[in-house]
Design a binder for these strands. Structure first.
Length: 951
RNA sequence: CCCCGGAUAGCUCAUUCGGUAGAGCACAUGCCUGAUAAGCGUGAGGUGGCUGGAUCGAAACCAGCUCUGGGGACCA
């Protein structure tokens, strides 16, 4: 028996079936780094149109988590797919280096700045710490397969960046957006600093809940504003008891700063006669009295207090009560009643105790009535010595004493505890207070910043589109941006103000430029070391340096100027900013506002957001839940390409789910894609594109169909990448591999590929198709499966001379000819006929009549319509159906199928199996010298080779 | 409390106009042993969240409800 196997063209390749990604990827990375791959890509792309994705800097602290990985990988998809689309798409990664978290870390190690360590040394320690963090994160980002200028990233603490941050502020000052003011800001009494809005977290907190009496200066005057129920006059004969306005608060500690009572102009207020005495505490009430409450809330309030009997004796409109004067419950102070829109009937009494020092709305409404701040609470949360009742005490500790004291003075009505959501510091997790402090602001109104920003938002493309509404709402409603902080590790504002007037120096921004030059040389410490006399000479005595530091959001917010504006390879405005959806509040907004304030336009043309990663149950990842998926664990187990494919398979616009199950499925998907590529390569063995490529018009119709199909899918994929719709792109790739290729084209061509004479048209036509397909597919994979695409690229035959990483979309694909004998429609019908045959064959298998489909012979009874298509393939229909015989008969016999006009009759072949091609043919053994072979195999082994016309 | 989505197979998601519900994965099962730690085939499965309405006819249109995601507001 001859060994005919050696006469076959069996697939063969060095491309391994299994990627061993965890081991092999690091090797590839090493080589890439050694070769200076990123620079090579830049050189290769020189002259192409620029595409700038500006990196939002992650904070330089801690290990990278899955959210970092998702963000960087999505950016990498953009960069690489834009490169495929013919752009020069550089990527300059950055890090946000200043700020409280690093300060806290360093403080833990070396102690408090200015106490244990000099400020300058502390800053150097912070700089060292940040550098270390950057290096650690960088290593991990590189391992993700993210391409970028890792040798020359931007750091917000680079000297020249620090200098440019100062210059950016100078420009904003020049453009008239800066102002100084006292304002209540969220203040961390533990951190001793003002907080940015984005640094505020809400947690549940148990607070006091107290109702307090404010007595009128002149009772008669108050009663005069009320109209009695009944005959219209209020006098002692109809009702009795002391009169008071009642407020409710959950922050007794703000009472020392209480300066007004707010009412709503449109609300009805009732004068209620009742008895508030209580068995629990004899101090709470002493017989009949009359109190003022919002009428709509009377029932609820009395129920809360446990008072059953009451009488509404008179009522008044809120607007009638304006400017009535009350007494502070314990301080020597007059308390006017004022009107404000913020008063509601949701909770409380309808009368709001107002302390401009400690509430944003209080501050605003106070301003309208000319009531300023008292500044009784210091930076550390301790009351000033002149504070009534609680001098020198800490705000966290006075709630109880104040409540007790109110009771003693007969001002307390009821006290209780309430659990509610309350603002906390995101770092120290301690409750925040509002505190009026001198701060520097970028004004939203003073020079039309808000209007310009809202206008600019309309010119930006927001993906998904609700992003626009979101940021519009935020910009529309936000207060002025407080950019000053009282911290150590931050870029100084570098403002110089007059000691007396507190006005900026007339040449303030020129001086800032001088400082910026010093900072460029020596870093921001230069400002702190600077003697004013060096800048101002004799004038120095009249001026003082502001040593506040900038909000870190300002640092990253101005990178459009300090980084994009400085680096030649980047163009401003950027084509894309891409960050998590929390950055609508953060970086997107800080960048927008500074962009407008400095240059009058948004620093980006498009903004893309992604959601957060959650576990299979939709829970946020947290250490305490133990559901954290660490990107490096995934990489070390499955490889970067799997992690990347997961990111590429997910709808990142909302929540992104990750679990072991999902990653396992992703790995399956990867194997399918990898194996398909492997099969392409294995069948290209011996193929030399220079000499072996068959021209389109000479190719077999099935092979042309395959190329045309590939072109069609490529167009879908291009569109998907253009739309940043990576899920659709990877799905299209996977579907192409398993459906169009695996279960149709590749299955059919195995016979021809293996058995046709090597180098014959039948063989080369097929290889030509596979060659074009793998060229295209390798590029499709590249943005997502970067490592795998690189591996595939090495194995594609022929001279390529260049790396996959700067290729553009493959242009060697072509559509079917317009006048083609076999159309896309025809192949679609043939595919469904094949499905019907498979069903019928499956029944035969169940009965044990056939095993492999090659054991069967099929007669297809077809209507004219169906037959017209099937007959186009002539005898080669059997190769498409993968049976030994397929005969089309116009008629109506056989078993019906789901296709109208198609019935089938299948029998097991009685012919001998050809030892070489495994088909069962009548002519097996017809040639004496090859008793085990069928006719076509004989010509393939020692003749001209069989001729295939269609498939 | 307000606004916007979603609810379809075990899972992830499709379904252009209102006309007998569709894919992938997973599962089950068979074939092959020339893609072999692969490949191919076949199959089962669904009260389209609930209730009501207009319609010859609804998963799709309308109303209400439930659950869920996102955003906003409030948080004295």
């Amino acid at each position: 028996m001859t060994d005919y196997k050696s006469t076959l063209n069996l697939p063969d390749t060095d491309f391994p079936m299994r990627g061993n990604l965890a081991q092999n990827e690091p090797k590839m990375l090493n080589n890439w780094t050694k070769d200076g791959l990123y620079q090579k890509i830049r050189e290769a792309c020189a002259g192409r149109p620029n595409y700038t994705l500006h990196d939002g800097p992650p904070y330089a602290n801690g290990n990278i988590h899955i959210g970092h990985a998702v963000n960087k990988i999505l950016k990498d998809f953009c960069i690489k797919s834009k490169t495929l689309s013919g752009f020069d798409a550089p990527y300059v990664p950055g890090w946000d280096c200043h700020g409280l978290p690093i300060e806290n870390q360093v403080e833990k190690k070396v102690g408090k700045a200015g106490v244990k360590v000099p400020f300058g040394e502390f800053r150097q320690k912070c700089r060292d710490y940040a550098s270390k963090q950057v290096e650690g994160q960088k290593k991990d980002f590189i391992r993700l397969g993210v391409f970028g200028d890792w040798d020359k990233p931007y750091l917000t603490m680079d000297y020249d960046t620090e200098a440019d941050i100062i210059r950016s502020l100078a420009k904003i000052v020049d453009n008239g957006h800066l102002h100084r003011g006292f304002k209540p800001v969220y203040w961390s009494v533990v951190g001793g600093s003002a907080l940015a809005e984005a640094e505020v977290e809400y947690h549940d907190k148990t607070s006091f809940s107290i109702d307090v009496r404010y007595a009128p200066e002149n009772e008669a005057e108050v009663l005069d504003k009320f109209t009695a129920v009944g005959d219209g006059t209020v006098d002692a004969s109809k009702s009795e008891g002391q009169v008071s306005a009642v407020i409710w608060t959950t922050t007794p500690w703000t009472l020392p700063s209480s300066q007004a009572i707010s009412a709503h102009a449109d609300l009805d207020y009732a004068l209620v006669e009742l008895d508030l005495s209580s068995e629990d505490d004899s101090r709470l009430g002493k017989g009949k009295e009359r109190i003022i409450l919002a009428e709509a809330m009377v029932e609820d309030i009395l129920q809360r207090w446990g008072v059953e009997e009451h009488k509404v004796v008179a009522r008044a409109k809120g607007s009638d009560l304006e400017n009535l004067v009350f007494k502070h419950p314990f301080a020597e102070r007059k308390i006017p009643l004022i009107l404000g829109e913020h008063v509601t009937t949701d909770a409380g009494t309808g009368l709001v105790h107002t302390a401009p020092d400690h509430g944003m709305e209080d501050f605003v409404v106070g301003k309208e009535y000319g009531i300023g701040t008292l500044n009784l609470v210091g930076p550390n949360g301790v009351f000033a010595e002149e504070t009534p009742e609680v001098p020198g005490q800490h705000v966290y500790k006075v709630d109880e004493p104040i409540t007790e004291m109110l009771a003693d003075k007969g001002r307390l009505i009821r006290q209780d505890k309430i659990r509610h959501s309350y603002a906390h510091c995101w770092r120290t997790k301690t409750p925040l207070i509002y505190r009026a402090t001198p701060q520097w602001f970028i004004s939203m109104a003073q020079n039309g910043l808000r209007e310009s920003a809202l206008e600019a938002i309309k010119g930006v493309r927001w993906v998904p589109d609700w992003g626009q509404e979101r940021i519009e709402g935020m910009v529309d409603g936000r207060p002025d941006w407080c950019i000053s902080r009282q911290r150590t590790w931050g870029v100084p504002l570098c403002l110089i103000v007059n000691k007396e007037t507190e006005e900026l120096h007339p040449r303030a921004t020129d001086l800032m430029e001088q400082v910026a030059k010093l900072v460029e040389e020596n870093g921001m410490q230069a400002w702190f070391d600077l003697e004013l006399s060096e800048l101002l000479g004799d004038e120095a005595n009249d001026y003082v340096k502001i040593e506040d530091t900038l909000d870190v959001w300002f640092d990253s917010g101005v990178t459009h100027s300090a980084v994009m504006g400085r680096r030649d390879e980047l163009s401003e405005p950027a084509d894309l900013y891409l960050e998590g959806s929390d950055q609508h509040r953060g970086w997107f907004q800080s960048s927008l506002l500074t962009g407008i304030a400095m240059n009058g336009h948004a620093p980006y043309k498009a903004v893309l957001t992604h959601g957060f990663t959650v576990d299979a149950n939709g829970n946020k990842m947290s250490k305490s839940l133990g559901n954290v998926v660490a990107p490096l664990d995934v990489i070390n187990k499955l490889g970067s390409d799997i992690l990347r494919l997961w990111v590429g398979s997910t709808d990142y616009r909302s929540e992104i789910t990750v679990s072991d199950e999902i990653l396992k499925r992703t790995a399956d998907k990867y194997r399918r894609m990898r194996n398909t590529a492997r099969f392409f390569l294995a069948n290209l063995k011996g193929f030399d594109p220079k000499t072996d490529v068959v021209s389109p018009e000479d190719m077999l119709p099935l092979d042309r169909w395959a190329v045309a199909k590939t072109l069609q899918v490529q167009n879908e994929i291009k569109t998907a990448f253009d739309d940043y719709n990576f899920m659709v792109a990877t799905n299209a790739m996977h579907h192409f591999c398993s459906f169009d290729m695996g279960s149709f084209y590749l299955d059919i061509i195995k016979d021809r590929q293996y058995t046709a004479k090597a180098g014959s048209l039948a063989h080369k036509s097929c290889q030509t198709a596979l060659y074009h397909i793998v060229q295209a597919v390798c590029r499709w994979f590249m943005p997502v499966l970067s490592f795998t695409a690189f591996e595939i690229w090495q194995q594609i035959p022929g001279e390529k001379g260049q790396e996959i990483f700067w290729q553009t979309w493959y242009e060697g694909l072509y559509a079917n000819a317009d006048n083609a004998e076999m159309t896309e429609q025809d192949w679609k019908l043939i595919d469904s006929v094949k499905t019907e045959c498979n069903k019928a064959l499956e029944l035969m298998r169940k009965d044990g009549k056939v095993g492999s489909s090659l054991e069967a012979e099929i007669t297809l009874y077809a209507s004219d319509e169906v037959a017209n298509v099937l007959e186009k393939l002539e005898d080669e229909l059997r190769f498409v159906l993968i049976t030994s015989q397929a005969k089309v008969v116009r008629g109506d016999e056989g078993e019906p199928t789901e296709i109208e006009g198609l019935k089938l009759d299948i029998v097991a072949s009685e012919h001998k199996k050809c030892d070489r091609c495994w088909h069962r043919r009548e002519d097996v053994g017809a040639v004496e010298s090859h008793p085990e072979l069928c006719g076509r195999c004989v010509t393939n082994v020692e003749g001209e080779g069989e001729v295939r016309l269609y498939a």
